[in-house]
């Protein structure tokens, strides 16, 4: 059976990991390659690197980083953050990224999803959607969740699926950072209305939250950052616990 995936997310700035990382046996916690190898050894199923560099120069170093990760890490990884052109995606894939995730750029120019899936295949196009509830309606937000739009989450998700997205990475701004669990109701609706995999993001605080998002949220994968980086939830223990809850995982 296809297993549920556990995906640590690493924020990258100028080629280095930024969020505080608390791995005792890591020589250099700022080195994305070291960290990625560590996660691969722990049983992470995939990795996501989110580039938050503000400058072109910073972005350039990310390309180098992608090359080094591809050289040394033997599990799939996605690169996202500030990607808005076919050329940029081409360069990332040439460096060995397996998938790219696009977010605001797809909202600004939805044809980008078609262009990428036609040229590189749906399997490497992840559309990331940040949304939060306004008067009970899930509305898409841009630029890391700071700019609200009138776009409905479910309509947008359906549209990008039709345009060729291979996967949706849905972050609930209402849940992100709260450690109170994932947005399972919205996730389950996405999973029912769409026929591509859905990655849950935002809200992971404990093991039960992962159990809930796979069972109630019908998520195909769950992404988290701080609970993994600070060692609050070790991946091997998380997976064992999921297994004992009858959730299929790779052990």
């Amino acid at each position: 059976m296809l297993t549920k995936r556990i995906i640590p997310c690493l924020d990258i700035k100028n080629g280095r990991t930024v969020k505080g990382v608390n791995f005792v046996d890591l020589r250099d916690a700022g080195d994305p390659v070291e960290l990625a190898k560590q996660y691969a050894n722990q049983g992470a199923d995939e990795l996501v690197f989110l580039d938050i560099s503000a400058t072109l120069e910073g972005r350039g170093t990310t390309l180098d980083m992608v090359l080094h990760v591809a050289e040394q890490v033997n599990i799939p990884f996605t690169v996202g953050g500030g990607i808005s052109s076919v050329e940029h995606v081409d360069a990332l894939l040439q460096c060995g990224a397996d998938k790219v995730s696009i977010n605001s750029s797809a909202v600004k120019r939805p044809e980008l999803v078609n262009e990428l899936s036609n040229k590189f295949g749906s399997q490497c196009v992840v559309v990331a959607i940040d949304a939060k509830q306004i008067d009970g309606q899930w509305k898409v937000h841009l630029a890391g969740g700071s700019i609200p739009t009138e776009i409905d989450l479910f309509e947008w998700a359906k549209e990008v699926e039709e345009r060729g997205a291979g996967e949706i990475l849905f972050t609930s701004m209402d849940h992100d950072g709260t450690k109170n669990g994932f947005a399972n109701e919205a996730l389950a609706r996405l999973s029912e209305e769409l026929n591509i995999p859905i990655i849950a993001s935002g809200g992971a605080g404990n093991v039960q939250h992962f159990v809930d998002t796979f069972k109630e949220g019908k998520s195909d994968a769950a992404l988290a950052a701080s609970v993994f980086h600070f060692g609050e939830i070790p991946i091997p223990e998380l997976k064992k616990e999921l297994k004992s809850n009858n959730i299929e995982v790779r052990l």
Binding site: L2, Q123, P197, D220, R250
Partner: peptide, 26 residues
């Protein structure tokens, strides 16, 4: 869901290509 994306098991292995690989490996 299409595409199938992620880790699944391979079974009934029948080739030297799979030497040392256990049944139902991911």
């Amino acid at each position: 869901k299409v595409p199938q994306m992620g880790w699944n098991v391979i079974k009934d292995l029948k080739s030297d290509l799979f030497k040392g690989i256990k049944e139902s490996e991911y």
